[in-house]
Design a protein around this nucleic acid. Structure first.
Lengths: 354, 354
DNA sequence: ATGAAAGCGCTAACAG
DNA sequence: CTGTTAGCGCTTTCAT
């Protein structure tokens, strides 16, 4: 089945030189006379010679391939990262291979990956994988170049490239507060990357700054899926004191909220304001178009690749932790809070006036 | 930088046996006494030994990795394939790596890929890449196991796993005809995989069967993007005799049509019926929900992986060309044609009555 | 400027 | 059952 690949030995033989000379001629390293070089190149061309990457790697060389490990290829954010990284990597004559870890980022699978990594890749970028602490610990012990993107669950010695979830979420919440909202709900995503937690921190910081008490009943937990957003919104709608705005930890869940609200006969943003996170393409297509936050994927991708390259080339890394401010995109799903109901509670009103 | 990986020699030394014995003990091939086997396994465990894939490959072994080459990771269809293939591959203790060729499926890049392939992968699956004829010719010359998915531009000696575009498109068009539509437009995607052409063939076959003359003015060319769908629909709306239904070669373009129709103040499906292709997740979310066609991605993925495995293991391939019927999903975007305008042309009417 | 030898980590093939 | 030898395709090191 496997075609006998053309080897350097054959090229050398055809050119009438030693293997080593052929190697030098082709790699350009070391002294080779122009004459022999031409001979070797001609022979290689005729035979259709392609160097065997594996053999080269076994001598400690590089593959010029870097790997990206992701956990959800359906995510528009992750796809944006991949696209940007592909482009950036190619600027350095390297290639990018993607590994879809799905929810298989177990220790066993991790070591399996690491095993495959023995030389197959020059370095690895992990984009938002659902990573357990043990898994991260394993990565930290690896001597291979690794960069983490959008991981902020805990501090690590590995280089990290993050979007600023905290300030972004704070901005978004503050925006809702400025629109007159007092009861603002927050819907969590999954806890694995720490992003959701950072976003909640920003949410709480904005509330606190505005003197609005934190109400745990307004904080729901989803799993980043649209369905979980629908379910969370449905639970929020059963509250005696309904929120007037929902801030979801990602756009998908915000879409899910829309579904629930439509189902309940409520209008966005008249009855309920909605803010998402990520600015996936659909966000500018849905009706009403979604107010959301956007990480600077392009800049982050470039930074991640460059940081990884620095480690691969043994150049001094820039910084352990790079953080990029997120952009707030105001669209139509957020608007002024509805006029307060006649039923008013002293406490809430008092705070609103403060 | 690179941690000196634990090698078999070290394991053997620690266990007090020869390298070969250690190899046998770990691989399970050949005779090894239980006693020595235990010793070796213990030593390997303590040292944290992991076999070097490259070295193994250099001896002609397999990597247990298969590659998937795609051209658009943002495509929901492609992501569905990837997810299904990942799962299927894992059933055979193998791994899947993804290469995003974007629009870089040039010959130069192809040979670059092929070079990387020298042993790094046991086989390759191409999913709907924008493939030139020369590129395909190169693939056909490769001795490595390769399977093509959703490629029907031309016949090839490579094994192909396809959805049935022709019959699917014919069903969809016939459905529109049965709803009373006579002027049905078709929007092409890109020509690279041949799918769009197959779909047009199905469209024309249905028209012909119903005795509706083919009108080239009703056939537009898009590029599978939503925007191109909008533009195509806008052009169709300028026609003196507007269509009453549009069949787009994929869902994205159908969404784009929706945008154009909304912009023109037309209602779907009252003023215009819409049918897409692919059944991407959004199709069941948009309002009105989209009538569309679905390839059986799960069955196709399994078939592709199994076919590839057969070639990798040198087992006889099943068939050169596997075709899976596509499912027609009727939703809300297609409905009865609006009542014909008073202005009627003799020819058209006559045909309708036939 | 060119060549020969050694060896990367592993396993197939043949001894013992 | 276990060990020895050889060699995959390439490059590093040391000769010539």
């Amino acid at each position: 089945m496997k075609k006998a690949a053309v080897t350097l030995v054959q090229v050398a033989k055809k050119a009438g030189v030693a293997v080593m000379t052929a190697s030098r001629a082709l790699s350009g390293e070391g002294y080779v006379s122009e004459e022999t070089k031409a001979k070797v190149l001609a022979a290689a061309g005729e035979l259709g010679y392609a160097p065997n990457t594996l053999a080269r790697v076994m001598k400690g060389g590089r593959t010029n391939v870097i790997g990206v490990v992701v956990n959800d290829l359906t995510s528009a954010v992750i796809n944006a990262f991949i696209a940007e990284m592909s482009a950036e990597v190619r600027r350095y004559q390297m290639d990018l291979f993607i590994y879809n870890a799905v929810d298989d980022l177990t220790l066993a699978n991790g070591s399996r990956l690491d095993q495959l990594l023995h030389g197959l890749w020059d370095g690895l970028i992990y984009v938002m994988p659902r990573m357990s602490d043990e898994y991260l610990a394993m990565l930290e012990q690896s001597e291979r170049p690794i960069v983490l993107v959008n991981y902020c669950k805990r501090t690590t010695r590995l280089p990290v490239v993050n979007g600023d979830n905290f300030n972004g979420a704070r901005d978004a919440t503050q925006h809702l507060i400025e629109l007159g909202h007092r009861r603002i709900a927050f819907i969590h995503g999954l806890p694995y990357t720490g992003q959701s937690e950072e976003r909640e921190r920003g949410y709480r910081a904005a509330l606190e700054a505005a003197g609005i008490p934190y109400d745990p009943k307004l904080v729901e937990r989803g799993n980043y899926s649209e369905l979980s957003g629908t379910e969370a919104a449905e639970r929020l709608l059963t509250l005696a004191e309904r929120p007037t705005a929902i801030f979801a930890a990602n756009d998908e869940m915000a879409f899910g909220c829309m579904v629930a609200l439509q189902g309940a006969g409520l209008s966005v943003p008249r009855d309920m304001s909605l803010v998402g996170f990520d600015d996936v393409p659909v966000s500018s297509i849905v009706q009403p178009r979604m107010t959301t936050l956007r990480h600077p994927t392009s800049a982050m991708s470039k930074a991640a690749v460059q940081e990884l390259l620095r480690r691969i080339l043994n150049q001094p890394g820039r910084r352990q932790r790079l953080e990029f401010p997120s952009e707030f995109v105001v669209r139509e799903s957020s608007a002024a809070a509805p006029a307060p109901k006649p039923v008013r509670r002293a406490g809430a009103r008092a705070r609103k006036e403060s």
